[in-house]
């Protein structure tokens, strides 16, 4: 019988190694798996390469992971935030590496990684400094640049509901990168507010099929990043 449920966030992130590449779902706070990120901080793995659209806010969640010195490199499209100084301070002092990727290229690189496609050509960013050194090839009279797929050792994502097989349904715009990351990681861990028995989700509405999910952890009342930041919470 397939049952991917694990006891708690601590068990869910077990086995992460030093220097791992970790994809973390979320666009801003929407879809950010805060409880899993905090478990990753507690776990202690460092030298991580983290893939996320942003760099977190305040001193909780992703920003707390970066502040704890666990992240060697960020791969993202928009590392600025109105209410966090964690990433900018480390970046300006040369203590964290940044690979800046256009948002659609970032999404497609992750999708390609999950789909077994090693690279693709896109016109996005042609002629800009972000693709200096990339191979350029002309298709139908237009220049395109070569982009390489992204894969990861671990993906940490958040969804609204899962069954024991790991079939997932998301909440509104919290879906963002998570279905792609689930496909692109060797081990995908999801935190969900609700777990139902297998068969409890209509197959027509499944967004992420369970084949892409390895561990399901129930977090009944997940924190919202903006709420923690407003209350001045820091982690740990």
């Amino acid at each position: 019988m397939i049952d991917k449920r694990v006891a708690d966030p601590e068990a869910a992130v077990g086995g992460v190694v030093e220097g791992a590449t970790v994809m973390i779902g979320g666009f801003g706070e929407a879809g950010s798996p805060i409880e899993l990120i905090h478990a990753l901080i507690d776990h202690g793995a460092s030298g991580l390469t983290v893939v996320n659209n942003n760099t977190g806010s305040g001193e909780v969640g992703l920003a707390a992971l970066i502040r704890a010195g666990r992240v060697a490199k960020m791969i993202c499209s928009y590392p600025r935030s109105a209410n966090s100084t964690v990433f900018p301070e480390l970046y300006r002092s040369g203590r964290i590496e940044l690979e800046l990727v256009p948002q659609g290229t970032l999404a497609e690189r992750i999708r390609a990684g999950g789909a077994g496609i090693p690279g693709f050509y896109t016109p996005t960013a042609v002629g800009t400094e972000l693709v200096e050194g990339h191979e350029v090839r002309e298709f139908d009279g237009r220049d395109h640049v070569l982009e390489h797929a992204l894969t990861a050792d671990l993906a940490l994502i958040k969804a609204r509901r899962a069954d024991w097989h790991g079939n997932l349904v998301y909440n509104r715009t919290a879906r963002n990168f998570s279905p792609l990351m689930a496909m692109a990681a060797t081990t995908t861990v999801v935190q969900v507010a609700e777990v139902v028995a297998t068969g409890g989700i209509d197959p027509e509405v499944v967004i992420t099929p369970g084949i892409f999910v390895d561990r399901v952890v129930h977090v009944a009342s997940p924190a919202h990043e903006s709420d923690l930041v407003a209350r001045g919470v820091t982690y740990p």
Partner: peptide
């Protein structure tokens, strides 16, 4: 200069 570089989806939008 010294600003934190951040692009988001702008390059995708203008090319597509």
């Amino acid at each position: 200069g010294d600003s934190i570089p951040a692009v988001g989806g702008a390059m995708d939008l203008v090319s597509g």
